[in-house]
Simulated assay, not measured.
Amino acid sequence: MAITLGPNRYGKAEIRMVHVDRTTPSHVLTDLNVSVALSGDLDAAHTVGDNSAVLPTDTQKNTVYAFAAEHGVGAIEDFGLRLARHFVTTPSITRAVVTIEAYPWRRLGPHSFQRDGGESRTARITVADGGEHVISGVTGLVLMNTTDSEFVGFIKDRYTTLAETTDRILATSVTAAWRHAPAGPAGDPAEATATPTAPDADWNTSYSTARQALSDAFTGTYSRALQETLFAMGQAVLGTGKGLAEVRLSLPNRHHFLVDTAPFGLSNEGTVFHADDRPYGLIEATVRDDELPEAPQAWTS
């Protein structure tokens, strides 16, 4: 029997950090959850306990705090790129993946904030072998249409009890991640010949535009299936003109069932529903721009 070590990684997960920018009278609050995963020449650490190539996970945590203290945070994509580029300067490390979740706070005053319970902004940055890939996204974006949704014409067998409907509530909690295409000459993604990310990328504008595209497509699509809505949302994100190559979407179907009020002597014409949290349908797909370069390694650790 020949036993060998396969692909491996290690790092510090879920580094919680709050940064307050006090350089202006109106403070800027950034609330992050940062995870680092490193790969490289680490076989000896696994096979013979030799730690000479290991950058301690505690050092990785301290680096996150130090970078924020020295340089600030800014857009989470920029912050992740700075960290990942730093980690691969360690001689034994050839690949760094930095994943960031940003929690939203709503401003109440110059130095007062309220934590919103809504969606979180996400970013995943990979630096390896001279290539850089940035994936931005959102999670927990809860959307609902109270009409303009139907579900008919599906397969029916001996186990089918679901009735067809031409008017239903469509609700979901969107998890979406979109990959930025590398920039080529004059910033044109279609002409990219290398993978480094454009240094002048406006991550914040790109994020707000993509997030709005998701919401607008959900709102404006007459849905014959959640799959149709998902594809429309993916098309809308790629159509923003922000150099996005593909978007991956995960949409749970948050079912709302009409309550039978007849036993109470009451009619229910689509006004009272039971919100059922599980089990739920889960619709997932990738929508791509085939004219832009692929980067499957960007999605894996």
Rank of each mutant, 00 (worst) to 15 (best):
P7F: 01
I135E: 06
T63V: 12
L81P: 05
P56S: 14
H133E: 07
F257I: 15
G130E: 12
F264Y: 14
A13L: 14
A201N: 11
P91Y: 01
L214E: 10
V127E: 01
V272L: 08
A37Q: 02
A96N: 03
A186T: 12
S250G: 14
G80C: 04
A232H: 09
S92T: 11
T209P: 06
V237C: 04
A53P: 00
T195N: 10
Y65D: 03
L162S: 07
V28S: 09
A2H: 09
T47E: 08
V36G: 01
A44N: 08
Y159V: 02
D167K: 04
A217M: 07
T161N: 12
L42Q: 07
R211G: 00
F273I: 06
V28W: 01
N253T: 11
G241Q: 03
S112R: 06
E14C: 11
N253Y: 09
I155W: 04
A210D: 10
L238N: 10
L141E: 02
R121F: 13
P56K: 00
D216A: 15
L226G: 02
A53N: 06
L238K: 07
T219V: 02
T146R: 07
S223A: 14
A177E: 12
V73Y: 11
V247Q: 04
N51S: 08
P252M: 02
T94W: 01
L244Q: 05
I283E: 06
S215G: 08
T23H: 08
L244I: 14
A192S: 10
N51R: 09
T161S: 14
R95L: 05
F151A: 07
R254L: 14
M233S: 09
D43Y: 10
P296D: 12
G80F: 05
R211F: 04
T146N: 10
P263K: 02
V48F: 01
T165D: 13
A171T: 02
Q297S: 10
E101C: 02
H133K: 03
T193N: 07
D41Q: 03
P185E: 12
T59F: 04
E101V: 09
A232V: 01
A236Q: 00
Q212E: 15
G241P: 05
A285K: 03
A37R: 06
A66F: 01
D31S: 15
D148P: 00
T4A: 12
M1Q: 12
